[in-house]
Design a protein around this nucleic acid. Structure first.
Lengths: 348, 348
DNA sequence: CTCCATCGTTAAACCGGTTTAACGATGGCG
DNA sequence: CGCCATCGTTAAACCGGTTTAACGATGGAG
C-alpha cells in the first residue's frame, strides 16, 4: 500500500501538505490540492488508520463489552446492539465487540490499552471488575443497567426503573388476587436481578404475602437455554408447591418454558396459572397461546440512549455522572387472570 | 497514561528492553524483567494498542460488514454473529462491526484503510461493490453467501446449498400435491434470493406447474418488518388467486405474517393452506399453531466456518479460493399437508 | 521604496511502540 | 592466553501519519 511519503514525492510536495489536503485542517491552494489528489488516486493511496489514530489520539471506534466467558448475545442484546449501531452510523463511529477472556488480556504479551475512544458496558454484575478497571483508566464509559452500589455514583449509566417496574407488575398480579408466586429471575450476581427481586419483595411484602410464597429462583450462569430453565424450574416448583398461581419470568423465552411446564402438568393458562414476562421485545409474545402479558423494556432505545450519552461524554470530556432512565410499558394480553383459588396458599 | 519511555527511565533500561519484556520476542534476564515489570505496575503502564498495531502491521481485529444504509441485525445475523464471536474468542481476535455509510467513508477527511486484519462480508448482492473494492486491496476476505458470478471464483465464501435446499423443500410440497404457490423471497438484489428462486422454479418447472402458479414476491428493501410483508403479501395474493395452497416464506417471521393472513381470511393451516419457512433458528417455530415446518440453516455454524476460513487465510496469506457449504436440515412439523383441492389452479 | 502582515508550503519533531545493527561482557575451547 | 560464539542490552531507525515553527513569496499600507 502506498504511503503518504509516496504521494508526496509523486506530486512534488511535502508530507505535511499531503496530510493537509486530506484532513483539510489548513488551507491548501486549489492547484496543489488537485495535483495531490490526482497522485493519490493513481497510487491507490489511503491514509493508514492506525498511524492516524496514533497521531490524533483518537480512533473513532467505540467498544461494547459483555461480561463472562463465551458469552452469547440474546434477543435483548440484539435489539440493544441495533440501537447502538444506529447512533454509531449517524456519528461516524465503528463498533468494536470486545469479548476476549480476561485470561487472554492480562497475559503480558497481550496487555494493552483498548483501541477505542469510549465504551459501553452491558449487564453489570455486583462489584463488576470491568467498571473498577475502567474507572482507573480515562476511557469514557457508560453502563447499561445499574452498577453495583460502590460504583453507582461514579459512573454514568442508562437503565430501566427495574424496581418500579417490578413493583407495578407484581401489584397487578396481587390485584388479580394472586398470593403465591414463582419468580424466575436473571442470574443472581447481576444487579438487574437484585432490583427486580427488591421490587417483587416490596410489593408482596406490603400485601402480606408470607415468605414461603415469595419464591425467587435465579437462572444459573451455565449457559443452558432460558427455555429449559423456565420449563424445569416451573415444573419442579409447582410439583412441590401446587398452590402457586402466578409465574413471573425474566424473558419471554423463559415464559415459554413455563407454558410448556403448565402443559406437561395439565394446568391451563391463565385459568389455573398466570404467567407474565419482562423483556418481551420479540414479535412472538403476542403469538403465545394465550398471548403473553409482559413488559416492554425498549432494548433498542436503551442502546441508543447509552450510545448518545457516551458520545456526549467523549466530546466534552464531561466528568458529570449522568443517568438516563428509559420508561417501561406493561402490555396486558391474556396470560394473567384471577386465580381459581383467590386466597391461594391454603389449597384444599 | 504512562508510555514505554517512562517505564524505561524508571527502571533504568532502554525502550527496546521494555518492549521485549512485554512481547517476549527476545530473551531478557529474569532480574531485568522483574525490575521492568515492577516499574510498569507502579506507573499503571499498558502498551498503546495503536502504536503497536502501527509497528506490527497487525491489529488482531476482524471486521464484519453488512450492506445497506441503516441496516438492522436480524435473528439470523444474531446467530451468525455468535458463531463468529466464538471463534474470535478462541483465537484472541476482536470483532469490528463496520456499518458506516459509503457517503461518509469516501469523504477525503474520512478516507482511510480499515483498521482490520481481515473481513467477513455478509449478505452479498449482485455486483456487490464491497467485494470489488476488497479484491483490489489486500485485506483477506470471506463472504457469507454466494457472491455474484463475476466474483464467485475470485473470493472465498461460506454458504448453504440454497438451490438444493429449495429444490428439496419445493419437491416436498409438490409431493403433497400442491400445484399453486406463493414464494415470499428475500430482497431481489441479494444473491440468496436468486438461488432460492432458481431452486423453486426448477422444482415447479419439472413438475409442470404453470407459470401463473409459480408466484415469487421479493421483499422490498425498505425496512418494513418481515411480518408485515408476509401478512400483506399473502393476504393480497390469496385474495387475487384463491387457488394458492402453499406459501413458502424466507423466514419464520414472514411465515408468521402468512399465518395471520390465513387467520384474517378464515383459512385453516394446514388444511387449506400449507406454510413452510427457511431460516428457522429461533425457539419459536415449534410454538406456532400449528408448529411450523421449515429448514434449519445453521446460522451459527455459518458464522463459525466463515471466521475459521478467514483466520486460515490470514495466517497463511493463502490465495487459494476456498468454499465451504454448510448443510441444511429440513424439519417437518405440522404446517404442511395435502391441499384440499389436490389439483389446485382450477378452483370451483 | 521600505516595512509588515498574510498566505501557502516545508523540514523537522512527534505520537508510542517494534526492530535492526552494533556492542560489551561472559564463557568455552584450542 | 588468545579467539570466537553466545547472550543480554542499547542506540537509532522505522512504522505512517499529524503538527509545529520557520520561511519565502506576495501584496497593501505608509
Amino acid at each position: 500500500m502506498a504511503t503518504i511519503e509516496d504521494v508526496a514525492k509523486a506530486s512534488g510536495v511535502s508530507k505535511g501538505t499531503v496530510s493537509n489536503v486530506f484532513s483539510k485542517k489548513r488551507p491548501i491552494s486549489r492547484e496543489v490540492a488537485e495535483r495531490v489528489m490526482a497522485a493519490a488516486k493513481a497510487l491507490h493511496y489511503k491514509p493508514n488508520y492506525w498511524a492516524r489514530s496514533l497521531a490524533n489520539k483518537e480512533t473513532r471506534i467505540i467498544g461494547i463489552s459483555i461480561p463472562g466467558e463465551k458469552f452469547k448475545f440474546s434477543q435483548f442484546h440484539l435489539s440493544l446492539l441495533n440501537g447502538v449501531l444506529g447512533v454509531c452510523y449517524d456519528h461516524g463511529y465503528r463498533l468494536l465487540v470486545n469479548t476476549l477472556p480476561p485470561s487472554f488480556l492480562t497475559r503480558p504479551e497481550h496487555l494493552a490499552t483498548d483501541p477505542i475512544d469510549g465504551e459501553i458496558l452491558l449487564d453489570p454484575e455486583s462489584g463488576d471488575a470491568r467498571i473498577a478497571e475502567r474507572l482507573t483508566s480515562d476511557v469514557p464509559v457508560v453502563v447499561v443497567g445499574r452498577p453495583s452500589p460502590e460504583f453507582e455514583n461514579r459512573v454514568a449509566y442508562v437503565d430501566n426503573d427495574n424496581v418500579g417496574m417490578t413493583l407495578e407488575t407484581t401489584r397487578y398480579l396481587l390485584g388479580l388476587g394472586h398470593r403465591s408466586f414463582l419468580f424466575l429471575n436473571a442470574p443472581a450476581h447481576r444487579t438487574v436481578a437484585d432490583d427486580r427481586a427488591r421490587g417483587f419483595l416490596a410489593a408482596t411484602g406490603e400485601a402480606g404475602v408470607p415468605e414461603a410464597s415469595r419464591r425467587i429462583v435465579y437462572k444459573p450462569d451455565t449457559d443452558g437455554s432460558s427455555r429449559d430453565f423456565g420449563y424445569e424450574t416451573t415444573l419442579r416448583a409447582i410439583r412441590e408447591s401446587p398452590d402457586i398461581t402466578a409465574v413471573i419470568a425474566d424473558t419471554d423465552t423463559m415464559a415459554l418454558g413455563a407454558y410448556k411446564a403448565a402443559e406437561t402438568l395439565g394446568i391451563r393458562i391463565p385459568d389455573a396459572l398466570s404467567v407474565l414476562a419482562f423483556s418481551e421485545d420479540s414479535v412472538f409474545a403476542p403469538e403465545f397461546a394465550p398471548p403473553l402479558t409482559g413488559v416492554r423494556l425498549h432494548a433498542e432505545r436503551l442502546g441508543r440512549e447509552a450510545a448518545l450519552l457516551l458520545l456526549e461524554r467523549m466530546r466534552h470530556d464531561d466528568k458529570t455522572v449522568k443517568r438516563t432512565l428509559v420508561p417501561t410499558d406493561m402490555v396486558i394480553r391474556s396470560s394473567c387472570a384471577m386465580p381459581t383459588i383467590p386466597n391461594g396458599g391454603n389449597p384444599k
